[in-house]
Design a protein around this nucleic acid. Structure first.
Lengths: 152, 152
DNA sequence: ACTGAAAATGTCGAACC
DNA sequence: GGTTCGACATTTTCAGT
């Protein structure tokens, strides 16, 4: 699907705040309410906008200990990869997991309450997964930018 | 604020799909529409739910080249940190940036079109920032999990 | 893409358990 | 804390042009 300037603006606006009403958007974009409505539906149908979510403040829900954990497997056979990946999907603490190039195979973003809970997670969950070679954890000290936005 | 089981369920549901209507939520939670409405307002007022956003498919908007870039500064003085951080905020390609412990100081999540655009970004934007010691880029090969969710 | 109108939801007060 | 009821405002949705 081809996107014009208005589509791009609309996508950016909805990535910042999806609770804006079509009326508000229509004013920002100089369109009618219906035109906005139709553009959004088109973006949804084209799966350019995939979903709408609420964002939660980790500090207020006892998940302020945030860790980036890199994982290396002992081998890179298809089987090892898929065992690891399907186990990761089951772990609630893991919010994101990406297969990456470089020294390590995966990077995980993990939300827990504190170091103790992280230790529990590592010992009883993550490192019980088969075929893990090594891991390296980086703890989040501060959040500089967390836009969750792809600027188009 | 103290959260009961229903609050937690509600938070998880809204993190998965914030477009659910209060009516749908009321059925899922065995509450009245009004009760759902009031709980959500309370969560918003308490800033437990901070905002609502649309998620975009990077492949459909020409941003399928995703990079985790770790950055090390040459020194850790307050001044160097804040110069770096304020420069990062200006870069549209950087969706997320966190200050982390460990070998590197920061990790960045970057969305661009392709390797060429990434090279442009590195040469003309990122590495022109003062006080950067070294960087290390990991390219995303695959997405295993991208829930953007904090399970409570 | 627009206008206009119907249908669905959101919002909130009141009375009550 | 929870409920139902009711009413109005707002928004979504869709015909027709």
């Amino acid at each position: 699907m081809k996107l014009d300037t208005i589509d791009k603006k609309l996508i950016n606006l909805l990535q910042e705040d999806s609770k804006r009403t079509n009326k508000q958007l229509s004013l920002l974009l100089n369109l009618s309410v219906t035109a906005v409505f139709e553009r959004i539906k088109k973006l949804e149908r084209a799966e350019i906008i995939t979903r709408y979510i609420a964002q939660v403040n980790p500090k207020k829900v006892d998940k302020s200990f945030i860790v980036f954990c890199q994982v290396k497997l002992i081998q890179h056979s298809r089987e090892y990869l898929s065992v690891f990946e399907s186990e990761i999907l089951k772990l609630d603490e893991v919010s994101e997991c990406f297969h990456i190039s470089g020294d390590y195979d995966y990077v995980l973003k993990i939300y827990v309450k504190d170091m103790e809970e992280y230790r529990e997670f590592m010992v009883n969950k993550l490192t019980t997964i088969k075929h893990i070679g090594s891991t390296q954890s980086s703890f989040m000290i501060g959040e500089v930018k967390n836009s969750a936005k792809i600027n188009v």
